[in-house]
Design a protein around this nucleic acid. Structure first.
Lengths: 132, 132
DNA sequence: CTTGACTCTGGACTATACTCTAAGGTTTAT
DNA sequence: ATAAACCTTAGAGTATAGTCCAGAGTCAAG
């Protein structure tokens, strides 16, 4: 059983973040010392690792909570359940990608129409476009 | 001079949003009635249009504030200034795009390694991967 | 036995962009 | 004249993901 500082160091997150995750139901230390210090067991450490990994692939904390539900109840869940969850997230990411690409194109169109020269911007095509 | 409700309707934003923009220095009505009602002049209406257009191409409110600065002082600004601003934003969008693509790929790798079948998820490659 | 490192809690603060509510005043239409 | 529609302000709430701080308690080492 380790204390919060050590876990924070090991997991490369801050103590505050661990407490924040706890407040949001992602990880609860298995025990406390008499003085109230959090004590994390091996399984807790793994759980934090899971959270960190899931963050790295783009899951939100909310999604991670659902993933942890799947992980904990994996014996009554199927691979299909897990894969569907991931595929749903891929869909969301694709939608975001589409929107960001649209924005990129709009901006590029804006930029390309502009001479970018020393001229005063009184007739700048960018400003003109935004004014319509 | 029109009141907030009409402007909101015309500009397709809520009254609250207009007041929110005002609080954040994006748009201030040119006048007020004796009763304190906001009165928007033609130039104010244009300004809101500018804000809405800029939002549509992905600028944040903070960036729009800077853009409005450029717009208002356009006679002492060059096309270069404006274009540089847009090009900088394109860079930011490109970085976001790169990150979102990375996430997409990670998720796809995760998904592809999973059988997605009826099997219990006890050996699910997705959960296994996140546990490392 | 005291100093420094560590931990606790609760709550404020950051950034982004609103949205909603309460309690009241004003204007317009009937 | 009165009701509906519109407007005002201040402030709280939403979602996301933390970060920081104060004031206090705990623990290990010299």
């Amino acid at each position: 059983m380790i204390r919060i500082g050590k876990l924070a160091h090991q997991s490369q997150v801050s103590r505050d973040t661990l407490r924040f995750y706890e407040k949001h139901g992602l990880i609860t230390p298995s025990a406390r010392t008499d003085a109230g210090y959090r004590l994390y067991a091996e399984s807790d450490i793994k759980r934090v690792g899971f959270i960190v990994s899931a963050k790295k692939v783009g899951f939100t904390l909310n999604e991670i909570q659902q993933l942890l539900q799947l992980e904990v109840t994996k014996d009554i869940k199927s691979c299909q359940d897990v894969k569907e969850f991931v595929d749903h997230k891929i869909q969301l990411v694709n939608e975001q990608l589409t929107e960001t690409r649209r924005i990129k194109k709009s901006l590029e169109t804006l930029s390309e129409a502009c001479c970018g020269g020393d001229e005063p911007a009184t007739q700048c095509t960018i400003l003109d476009t935004l004014n319509r």
